[in-house]
């Protein structure tokens, strides 16, 4: 085997298993047929193959049975912004216990206001609320722009606080992951208009009601929201109800709600599993790593299908 063929083998090995089994040999043939005098795969060819592999992995990540996934993404585009807003409960809890005047007062840190320390994520949740309203009115493109802004906002929260810390990103891993998923759904799916056709007014109302009830439960809980066992369990149960109510109508709906429910619920469960308040890096690795593993495991990679 030549160096060129070995290089192509390595790149094709990055494709999903079922695709490799079905098309691997065929792709190598096409690559070798089109190969010129190079000893190794060219840069453009390498980037193209890597991008192709990433696209197919992403496509399979939300496909359990090999059927078109656009409807799943359309449902996510409609319901997703609401699921992301579950993460706002902590900020609302903080807001409830603080007076507006005190939040707008100066912080101990020079040049900063108090809300920047206690509620650095508040502006981002406002953006996501606007995104949810835009999605409800089926304004896909505007909502997509808002969702990407909201996602960038999530990543900026640690830098809004007077004393930057990555801990917020670790604690809100679910919201950040869900934010990226929703932004992608709003950008590349048929959008919330198609999602509305699939979900319908009744199911949307049930889902929105359950999310609102969860947020309110968190917000009115005594003490800080993640210190309350009762509200955490309540949240998981309520999101479970939302999954049942929102996802029972079809396999598409079930997968759509599952895609959003897991990122939102798992960090809450994880925080209670790791009661010992671990270091941020461990927490972040746990939240993001476990999320990725569980989401991939639940949604699954299809095995090879005969041609």
């Amino acid at each position: 085997m030549t160096g060129l063929e070995t290089g192509y083998h390595r790149l094709v090995a990055l494709y999903p298993r079922d695709h490799r089994e079905r098309h691997g040999e065929e792709m190598l043939g096409v690559l070798m047929d089109g190969a010129t005098e190079h000893a190794r795969p060219g840069l453009r060819e390498t980037v193209d193959l890597l991008w192709g592999a990433a696209r197919l992995h992403l496509r399979r990540m939300v496909t359990a049975d090999g059927k078109p996934t656009r409807d799943v993404w359309a449902a996510v585009a409609l319901l997703g912004p609401l699921a992301v807003l579950l993460g706002a409960a902590g900020a609302l809890n903080e807001l409830r216990t603080s007076s507006p005047a005190s939040l707008l007062g100066p912080s101990l840190s020079p040049g900063a206001m108090r809300w920047q320390g206690s509620l650095p994520d508040l502006p981002v949740w406002v953006v996501w609320f606007v995104v949810a309203v835009l999605a409800l009115f089926r304004l896909r493109r505007t909502a997509a722009v808002g969702a990407w802004l909201g996602t960038v906002g999530f990543l900026s929260v640690p830098f809004i606080a007077p004393d930057p810390s990555m801990r917020w990103l670790a604690l809100h891993a679910g919201s950040v992951v869900a934010g990226v998923v929703v932004a992608a759904a709003l950008t590349w799916s048929p959008g919330p208009a198609r999602g509305w056709e699939l979900v319908g007014a009744k199911r949307f109302t049930v889902f929105a009601g359950v999310v609102a009830a969860t947020v309110v439960l968190f917000a009115i809980a005594p003490g800080r929201y993640h210190d309350s066992v009762l509200t955490s369990i309540g949240s998981v149960l309520l999101v479970g109800v939302a999954v049942a109510a929102g996802g029972a109508w079809s396999r598409t709906g079930y997968r759509a709600v599952l895609m959003l429910g897991l990122p939102v619920v798992l960090p809450v469960v994880l925080l209670w599993t790791l009661r010992i308040d671990p270091k941020t890096a461990v927490l972040a690795a746990g939240c993001y790593g476990l999320l990725a593993v569980v989401v991939l495991a639940v949604i699954g990679t299809p095995r090879a299908r005969s041609v």
Partner: peptide, 21 residues
């Protein structure tokens, strides 16, 4: 049309039922 783009497109076109083997 490079191989990565071609096979990602063929994968989708087959799913949509527009192309078959």
């Amino acid at each position: 049309l490079r191989a990565g783009t071609l096979y990602a497109a063929l994968d989708r076109l087959r799913e949509d039922g527009w192309v078959d083997v």
